[in-house]
Computed example of a mutant assay.
Amino acid sequence: MKKALYILAEISDRDFEWILSVGRSKRVTAGTTLIYEGEPIDAIYIVLEGTLAVCVESLGGEEVARLGHGEVVGEMSFVDARRPSATVKAVEDSLVFTIPRSQLAAKLAQDLSFSSHFYQALAIFLSDRLRSTVSRLGYPKETFAAPPPQPSSEDENHYLEDSLRLAEARLDWMLNRLKGR
């Protein structure tokens, strides 16, 4: 699932408008580095178009992931205030939405509702990323297998589907709005 959808599904319309008002679009041409491993960053990014490569210097600059439309970049450094653990560069001409760290931090400190929804979404998608990484490393499935699905009501399924549709619509709307600037 696109990682930005977790955030966009959790926040209110008012908070979505706030993100749009403080964020900016940024074109990243193919071959350009967006984030340098070990160097501080001042924003988190949502990939709106294009493809970014995630490379790790300790692995000889090996590419460990590719990120595309709807992925979030820089969230780990935002959460733990440490320098990035990887370099992120554009594989092709890309468009990212930049949310300044200082403004996001201030909003999270002042708005408890936004903060709880934002951090819940981050926790969910970081957990999802860790599970994917663990499964790619080849650990036995039974060691890290997800718990058996819990029976859920039809109402819960509809709520989840509605939330994801809203998040997709918000992501598409963001892209269309930025193209119109």
Rank of each mutant, 00 (worst) to 15 (best):
G74M: 06
V96P: 02
L108A: 13
S85D: 14
R82C: 13
S116P: 02
R82L: 15
V88R: 01
V73G: 01
A90L: 08
L95Q: 13
A123Y: 08
K107E: 13
A109I: 10
F118E: 00
D111I: 11
E92C: 05
F78Q: 01
V88T: 04
F97C: 01
S77I: 12
A105Y: 12
D111A: 09
V96C: 09
S85R: 13
V72W: 02
D111R: 04
A81H: 13
E75Q: 07
D111Q: 07
G68T: 10
G68M: 01
E92V: 07
Q120L: 14
H117W: 11
A106D: 13
S94D: 02
V88N: 06
H69C: 06
L104N: 03
S116I: 08
V72E: 00
P84Y: 09
F114W: 03
S85Y: 14
L112A: 13
H117Q: 15
S77K: 06
Q103I: 06
V79T: 04
V96W: 03
L112S: 13
F78R: 03
V88F: 03
V96I: 09
A105H: 12
A109V: 14
L112C: 07
A106G: 09
F118V: 08
L122P: 01
P100Q: 10
E71M: 07
A90S: 05
V73K: 08
A123Q: 06
V73R: 11
Y119A: 06
V91S: 12
F114M: 10
Y119D: 09
Q110G: 08
A81L: 07
D111P: 06
V73S: 00
K107P: 08
S94I: 05
G70A: 07
G68R: 05
A121F: 05
R82P: 03
V73F: 03
S102C: 12
E75C: 00
G74Q: 01
F97G: 00
G74K: 00
F114E: 02
A86C: 05
R101D: 08
L104R: 03
A106I: 14
L108K: 05
S102M: 12
A123T: 14
D80W: 06
G74W: 06
M76S: 04
Q120W: 14
F97Q: 02
S94A: 15
H117M: 10
L95E: 14
V91Q: 11
D111G: 08
K89L: 05
A123C: 10
V79H: 04
E92F: 07
P100H: 11
A86V: 10
Y119N: 12
A81V: 08
G70Y: 07
G74C: 03
V73H: 04
H117S: 14
P84G: 04
P100N: 12
